[in-house]
Computed example of a mutant assay.
Amino acid sequence: MKKLWLIIGMTLLILGGCNEQETLPTEKESSQEIGNSETAFPLTLTDAVGQEITLEEAPTSIISMIPSNTEILFALGLDEEIIGVNDYESYPKEALEKEKIGGMEYNIEKIISLSPDIVFAHESIVSMAESGLQQLRDAGVKVFVVQDAKDFNLTYTTIEQIGRATGKYEEAQAVIEDMKAKVDEIQEKVAKVETKKTVFVETSDVPEIYTPGNGTFMQEILTMVNAENIMADQDGWFQVNPEEIVSRNPDVMLITYDYVEGIVEKVKQRDGFDTVTAIQNDEVVQVDEDATSRPGPRLVEGLEEVAKAIYPEAFSE
C-alpha cells in the first residue's frame, strides 16, 4: 500500500508541475499577507488555487485531507478541534484515533455530514479531487487549499498560514523558530565535514527503482547537509536502472521505504552492486520516508536523520 501511495504521490507531483496556476501567490506575497492582522477575526484568506474564504472566528471543528496538514495541525495543539483525517495517517498516534474521511478517494458526503468549520485540502490533490472540493464548497463547507511546499521556506510559510487560519499564529511562530534553530544546529555540525560524500536516494525497489533529483525536498535536504545527490542532473522523481546506480558509484545509499522486509540487505546483494563504494563501506542506510518528505514540522527530524546517515562522525560527540 505504501508503494501504491508513493507512486500516486509522484504522479500527482508531476501533474501539479504541469498545471501550475499563474494566480498563485509568490512566497514573498504569501508572507506579506500572513503578516497582517496575525490573529484577528473575522479573517479573509486566499488559498493556493485562488479561492477566498472568510472565517468569523477561530474554527473549533477541523478536517484535514492529507497527512502533512494533519501533522501541522497537531503541532499547533489542535487535537481537540480535529474531527476528521486521511485514512493513511501515521503520525502522531492521536491522528489514528480520529474519524477517517478517505485516503486516495474522499468520502465527500461524510465530510459534509461532520459539519466542519474548515477543511484543509492540499494543492497536490486538487487535480484528483477537484470535483469533490467544489462539492464541499457548494454545500457551504469552507475549504482552504494549502500550497504544495517544495522547500523548507515554503513549509514555514504554510505552517504560518495554517496557524493564522486556526487562531494559532503564535504557536505557529514557535514551531517555525524551533525548526530553524534545529536546522542551524544540524548544519553547523555537517559544515565541519572535510570530504563531501555522494549519495543515491532510493524511493522504491526493483524492478522500478525511483529516485529524487533536482527540485525535490530530498535534493534540498542533501544540499543542506553538505552532501551531493548523484542524480541531481535530472528534475523531479524518475525511474533509474540498477546499472546507472553502479556506474555513478555513490558513497552512500539512502533507502526511504519500508514496504520490503530486509531491504537494506537485499540492496547489498543485488547483482553487480559489490563494486559500489556504499556497499563496500557498508553505508546503505534506511531513513524515515514520512519525515524526509512531508512538508511539516518533522522535516527537521528527517534532515537530522539524513545527516547522521551520511556523516555519523559529525554527530558522535
Rank of each mutant, 00 (worst) to 15 (best):
residue 197 K to Y: 02
residue 295 P to L: 06
residue 250 P to M: 05
residue 106 Y to G: 08
residue 235 D to E: 14
residue 251 D to Y: 03
residue 287 V to R: 01
residue 44 T to K: 10
residue 14 I to M: 11
residue 218 M to T: 13
residue 20 E to L: 14
residue 183 V to R: 13
residue 41 F to A: 07
residue 71 E to R: 10
residue 25 P to I: 01
residue 1 M to A: 14
residue 12 L to E: 13
residue 99 E to L: 05
residue 95 A to V: 09
residue 5 W to M: 14
residue 38 E to G: 04
residue 8 I to H: 11
residue 301 E to V: 12
residue 272 G to F: 01
residue 272 G to V: 06
residue 68 S to T: 12
residue 24 L to C: 06
residue 203 T to W: 01
residue 24 L to A: 15
residue 315 F to Q: 03
residue 83 I to E: 09
residue 243 E to K: 05
residue 288 D to H: 07
residue 214 N to V: 00
residue 301 E to N: 14
residue 20 E to G: 13
residue 107 N to P: 08
residue 29 E to H: 02
residue 246 V to A: 11
residue 197 K to C: 02
residue 273 F to K: 02
residue 97 E to W: 04
residue 169 Y to C: 06
residue 32 Q to Y: 08
residue 311 Y to D: 02
residue 83 I to F: 12
residue 291 A to K: 15
residue 240 V to I: 15
residue 274 D to C: 00
residue 280 Q to W: 00
residue 102 G to T: 11
residue 248 R to E: 04
residue 18 C to H: 09
residue 228 E to K: 03
residue 220 E to A: 09
residue 128 M to G: 00
residue 162 I to R: 00
residue 99 E to R: 07
residue 151 D to T: 08
residue 183 V to N: 00
residue 80 E to N: 14
residue 35 G to L: 12
residue 110 K to W: 06
residue 226 N to A: 02
residue 110 K to I: 06
residue 287 V to N: 01
residue 140 G to S: 06
residue 21 Q to S: 10
residue 28 K to G: 04
residue 133 L to T: 05
residue 191 A to G: 15
residue 291 A to N: 13
residue 137 R to N: 03
residue 175 V to G: 06
residue 99 E to N: 13
residue 177 E to H: 09
residue 69 N to R: 06
residue 139 A to Q: 02
residue 142 K to C: 10
residue 129 A to Q: 15
residue 5 W to C: 05
residue 219 Q to T: 07
residue 92 P to V: 08
residue 106 Y to N: 10
residue 259 Y to R: 03
residue 219 Q to P: 03
residue 97 E to Q: 14
residue 186 I to C: 04
residue 315 F to T: 02
residue 218 M to V: 15
residue 56 E to K: 14
residue 286 Q to L: 12
residue 205 D to S: 15
residue 14 I to Q: 13
residue 236 G to H: 07
residue 58 A to W: 06
residue 32 Q to R: 12
residue 83 I to A: 08
residue 76 L to E: 05
residue 300 V to R: 04
residue 37 S to M: 09
residue 45 L to C: 08
residue 230 I to P: 01
residue 87 D to G: 07
residue 19 N to M: 14
residue 225 V to P: 01
residue 262 G to Q: 10
residue 78 L to D: 05
residue 98 K to P: 07
residue 104 M to Y: 12
residue 191 A to E: 14
residue 175 V to S: 06
residue 167 G to Y: 02
residue 43 L to D: 02
residue 51 Q to A: 11
